[in-house]
Design a protein around this nucleic acid. Structure first.
Lengths: 234, 234
DNA sequence: CGCCCTATTGAATATAATCAACCGCCGTGG
DNA sequence: CCACGGCGGTTGATTATATTCAATAGGGCG
C-alpha cells in the first residue's frame, strides 16, 4: 500500500464528478486535509460537519465503540474510497476514522442546508438520509457479529427488534417473532442448535421468555448489560 | 409482529414525503404489491427495476448467497423500513428479499433515468449511487463475519484488499498491509493470537506469504475456494 | 389421526479464547 | 556504535464455547 501517487490537480481524480459544483473544489487548494498516522479524521461523538471525505492517499480504519466495550474495527478504507457516508443527517458521528498511515483526504461539501430548508422536494435529499441510515444499520449488524458469545448476539437481536417495535408504537417487551429459528441462526452466524440452547440459557437467567414465536423481554436492562459485556446482575 | 394495521391511504404513511412527487403514488391504487409468505420480492440475480420498496405490512429477511454456499440471512426488515436501497445503479440484485409472512409493500420510483441522462449535475445522484454501493460493501462485510472459521475470514480479507488494489491499478498479488495485526483481528472478529496462527496455517498451505506487513498471494484461486467453503486443493 | 417439518436435547469433537511467556524489530539514548 | 526498553507480534498450554452428528419431541396442516 504505502501512499498512492499524489495527483495535485483534480482533473484525473475519480471523484471529480462528485466534487464539481461544490464551492471551492475547483481551486484545488484549501480543501485538502492531512491526517497523520494514528490521528483521527473524526471521532465518534464529534459534531458532524457539512462534508464527506474522499481519500486521496493513505488508509483508514473505521472504529465503532459499543458502550463499555473497547472500540471494534468495522472496516478499512483505501483510496479512492469515501469516509463519512454514514453520517448524513446525523448530529454527531457514530464512529471514528483513524489514519493507519499519513494520509490525505479531500473534503466534499454535502449540502445539508438544502435539505434543512426544504426548498427542494424531500425525495432526493430524503433518499440521502435514508441510505445513510441504512449504512449505519448495517454497521450495527457488523458490530453485533463481533460479539463472540452467542448469548450476546441473541440479546442484541432481541433488543433491536424491541426498539423497532417500540418505534412503531407497539409493545417493546412483548411481540411475535416473524422468523424461524433457522433464520435467526443464520442472521446471528451460529447454528440453529446453538440458538435453542441460548434461548434456554436466557430463560434460566430470567432475561426473557421465548416460546415458539412469542417473546417477552423480562429484563431489557440486563439484556443490554449482556450485550455490553457487563455483569448481567448488577 | 403479525401484520401492522393497514392504512389504505397514504396520508398517514411515514414514507409519504419520499413518495410524493413520484408518478402514481398520489392515487393509492396499483403501486402496492402483495408478497406471500416465503415468496420473494426480488431475488439475487434478478434485473433491478426503477423502484425501491417500503414495507407497509409483514416482514422480510434479506438473504445473500456467497457462491457455493447456502444463502445467509444478513438482515431483517420490518415496517416502516425499506427494501432495495442497496441496489441503486446496479443491473441485478445482489441479494434476495423473502417475505417471512404475508406482506405488502409500496413501490417507490427511483428516477434512474434522471441519472442516466445526466440532465442534473452528477453530484446528488452520484451520491445516491455511492451510498448504495457503501451499503453493499457493509453487507459483504457482514457476509464475511458469517464464516465460522478464522481461516475463511482472513482469506476473504486478503482477497478484498487484493481486489481493491487491483481496481486502483496496483498489483493484486503483492502489496503492503496498512493495518496492524490487532486491527485485522478486530475487523475479523477474532483475537490477535488467532490471526497469527491463521497466518501460519495459510503459509503452510502455500496460499500466501505474509511477513510483517508485506503480503504475497500465492494462490488467489485457492483462497477463494477457502472462502467459499470448498476444498482448497481441487 | 397421522405425517412432516421445525425445534429441542444430548454426547463427542473441533475451534478459538484466554492467560502467560517469549521473541524481535525499532527507536532511543548513552 | 551498541545497549536498552517498549511494543507489536508470535508461540504454547489450558479452558470455554460452539459445532457436529444423532436422536427425540412437539405443532400445524392435510
Amino acid at each position: 500500500m504505502s501512499t498512492f501517487p499524489e495527483r495535485s490537480r483534480c482533473e484525473r481524480c475519480p471523484h471529480q464528478p462528485l466534487c464539481r459544483g461544490t464551492a471551492a473544489v475547483d481551486q484545488t487548494a484549501g480543501l485538502r486535509r492531512r491526517v497523520g498516522r494514528h490521528e483521527s479524521l473524526f471521532r465518534a461523538g464529534d459534531p458532524v460537519g457539512n462534508q464527506i471525505y474522499s481519500i486521496r492517499s493513505g488508509s483508514f480504519k473505521l472504529e465503532m465503540a459499543a458502550p463499555h466495550c473497547k472500540p471494534q474495527v468495522i472496516g478499512f478504507a483505501l483510496p479512492p474510497e469515501f469516509l463519512g457516508l454514514n453520517m448524513l443527517g446525523m448530529a454527531v458521528h457514530s464512529c471514528s476514522a483513524v489514519a493507519l498511515e499519513d494520509s490525505e483526504v479531500c473534503c466534499i461539501e454535502w449540502d445539508r442546508q438544502r435539505f434543512r430548508g426544504r426548498r427542494q422536494p424531500l425525495q432526493r435529499d430524503g433518499l440521502h438520509l435514508l441510505l445513510s441510515a441504512e449504512i449505519r444499520r448495517e454497521q450495527r449488524a457488523i458490530l453485533m457479529l463481533h460479539h463472540t458469545h452467542a448469548e450476546q448476539r441473541m440479546a442484541e437481536l432481541m433488543l433491536t427488534l424491541s426498539r423497532r417495535h417500540d418505534a412503531n408504537g407497539y409493545s417493546s417487551t412483548q411481540f411475535r417473532l416473524p422468523m424461524s429459528r433457522c433464520d435467526m441462526a443464520s442472521y446471528l452466524g451460529v447454528t440453529p442448535e446453538c440458538v435453542s440452547r441460548v434461548i434456554v440459557q436466557l430463560r434460566r437467567q430470567a432475561l426473557l421468555d421465548l416460546r415458539r414465536r412469542d417473546v417477552t423481554l423480562l429484563d431489557p436492562a440486563a439484556l443490554q448489560r449482556m450485550v455490553d459485556g457487563q455483569p448481567v446482575r448488577p
